[in-house]
């Protein structure tokens, strides 16, 4: 399995794949936006404001998913002393941070017409803001430490501290009274979102996931070039 991590082989993939991923992203995003903004019905209660949800929810999902992934990768990298895991985590983080900010901003834009406020210090919104702060700490710590050993340890610690917050984000709406509504989509029980609205939501999620993949491949490619420039043929 560790043979796969030979940078020259991965480099061949990461340098060619982005253009195909970009093409796929543009196609899926166009379908998704057409569905979300034009074809899907308006909500019975919030009418067109519901369309913000097609950006808000996928962005939130992906930022949570990416944070969980970088935590898993950092811990694995720390335990097995594998540099490659850290480089993958580092390349994933920026798009997760961007989607976290998008989720907060679109939530705020949606909150004003529906709730009547831009911001509320409720458990879901505050915990999501804390996640953004952890992302920021993670990204900054890659820039401020010169020694690789140090960066690996510090970023692992930041992800471990941050991951405790992830289940709090997920269950905040069930554990406490929050202004934010509980989840509409449940894997085990019936979802409370109509199928005509679920479909564009899933397409938009696929589009955002492809965007993250695209940014990841480009970032990871750069990291591999850096490794190659140092004259190392293995990680």
């Amino acid at each position: 399995m560790f043979k796969l991590f030979h940078p020259n082989k991965i480099f061949q993939i990461t340098s060619k794949a982005p253009k195909y991923v970009l093409f796929l992203f543009v196609v899926v995003l166009s379908v998704g936006l057409t569905e979300a903004l034009i074809l899907s019905p308006e909500d019975y209660k919030q009418s067109d404001a519901v369309r913000i949800m097609y950006v808000h929810v996928p962005a939130a999902w992906i930022s949570l998913g990416i944070f969980s992934s970088i935590t898993f990768l950092s811990i694995s990298g720390f335990i097995f002393k594998n540099k490659n895991f850290f480089l993958i985590a580092k390349s994933l983080a920026p798009s997760g941070f961007v989607f976290n900010i998008i989720a907060l901003v679109t939530g705020s834009i949606w909150g004003k017409p529906t709730w009547g406020t831009w911001w509320a210090w409720d458990a879901r919104i505050t915990s999501m803001l804390i996640l953004a702060l952890f992302y920021a700490m993670y990204l900054i710590s890659w820039r401020i430490y010169e020694s690789e050993e140090k960066v690996f340890k510090i970023t692992t610690l930041i992800t471990i501290l941050g991951i405790v917050n992830v289940p709090i984000i997920k269950y905040s709406v069930d554990w406490w009274n929050t202004l934010h509504q509980p989840a509409s989509i449940n894997i085990l029980s019936k979802s409370s979102i109509h199928s005509s609205m679920l479909f564009p939501l899933l397409i938009m999620t696929a589009a955002f996931a492809l965007f993250s993949l695209l940014i990841f491949l480009m970032k990871y490619n750069t990291e591999l070039i850096k490794v190659k420039n140092k004259g190392l043929d293995r990680l």
Partner: peptide, 18 residues
Amino acid sequence: SKILAKHDENYMPPEVKQ
């Protein structure tokens, strides 16, 4: 001094609601 509307988790088109 301030009122906020709380939205529930139900999303559906008006026809379905009807």
